[in-house]
Nucleic acid binder design. Structure first.
Lengths: 129, 129
DNA sequence: TTCCGTGCAAAAGCTTTGCATATTG
DNA sequence: CAATATGCAAAGCTTTTGCACGGAA
C-alpha cells in the first residue's frame, strides 16, 4: 500500500467534492490553509498534477495564464466573471455536432475543444450596470 | 504628424496582411528578422500592444500561456494543431445562438466567448495515424 | 532499507517595465 | 525643444524542478 499523502488527500477532497470550478493553485493553497492544512506551493502543484494524472481531477486553462483544476465530471464548458473571477459551469456541449463541418472547413482532424464564455456573474452584473 | 515607427509598421504589415492566425511574439520577431528587420522583443511587444490598442490587430490566448496576435477580422474561432502548433481559423460562430440559454443556465450576463478546437492539421494527421 | 511526500530555494519561460539613447517633427 | 521609438537589462508572475530530509512500509 502506498504511503498516504495528507496534502494530496486534502486536495482531492477539496477539489473533487466541491462544486466550485476552475481552482487555481493559489486558491487551493488558500483553501487548504483555511482548513488548517499548511502546504507549500510546490506540494500543492505536485498534488494537483498527480491527481490529474490519476484522472481524479482535470486541468483547464481559461486564458489568464493560470492553470486551473476541477473535479472530473461530465463534459461541460466554462464561464468566468470578468469582474470577480468566479468560474461557473455551462452544462452540456454546444459544439459537438459542429465538429464534422469544422473538420471540413479546416482540414484538421478535431480531437478536442474548449468553449469559454466571459461575462458578469449574478453578484457583479447589477453593480456594473 | 506622429513620428514613424519602422518596427511597428513592419509588424502591422506582417500580421495584418497575412492570413496566418495566432502569431506569437516570438514568431513575429522571427518573421521580421527574415525580412531584414531586427527588433528587440520588447519593441515587438510594445508594437503589438499598441496595434491591438489601436484596433489594427487583436490579441488572443490559446491556452498555452503565450499571447497571440492576428489581423482584426470578422468573428471566427480557432483551431490549433497539437503536433506542430499551427493555428487555423474556423469561420463563423458556433455558439452565438446559444448565449440566451447559457445566460439562463448560469445566471451570468454573457459578454464574450471563445471557442478553441484542438486537433491535427493536414500535415500532421497522416503521420500520427 | 527503500520509497515517497514535503518544504525550501532556485530555475525556467514569457511578459512587462525602467532607463538611457536616438531620432523625428 | 518636445515627443516618440528602440535597445538592453532587469523585474515580475506563475509554473516547474532540484535537493535534502523525514516518515512509512
Amino acid at each position: 500500500m502506498p504511503r498516504p499523502s495528507a496534502i494530496r488527500n486534502s486536495i482531492a477532497e477539496l477539489v473533487s467534492r466541491s462544486d466550485r470550478h476552475g481552482w487555481t493553485i493559489e486558491e487551493v493553497s488558500a483553501a487548504l490553509e483555511q482548513r488548517g492544512v499548511r502546504a507549500d506551493t510546490s506540494s500543492v502543484f505536485r498534488g494537483l498534477v498527480r491527481l490529474a494524472d490519476d484522472g481524479v481531477i482535470e486541468a483547464l486553462e481559461l486564458g489568464d495564464g493560470r492553470v486551473r483544476y476541477e473535479a472530473r465530471a461530465e463534459h461541460h464548458e466554462h464561464i468566468s466573471c470578468s469582474s470577480c473571477g468566479t468560474v461557473g459551469a455551462v452544462p452540456g456541449c454546444l459544439v459537438e455536432q459542429a465538429i464534422p463541418s469544422v473538420e471540413g472547413a479546416t482540414g484538421f482532424r478535431v480531437t478536442g475543444h474548449r468553449v469559454h464564455f466571459t461575462g458578469l456573474c449574478v453578484q457583479c452584473a447589477p453593480a456594473a450596470g
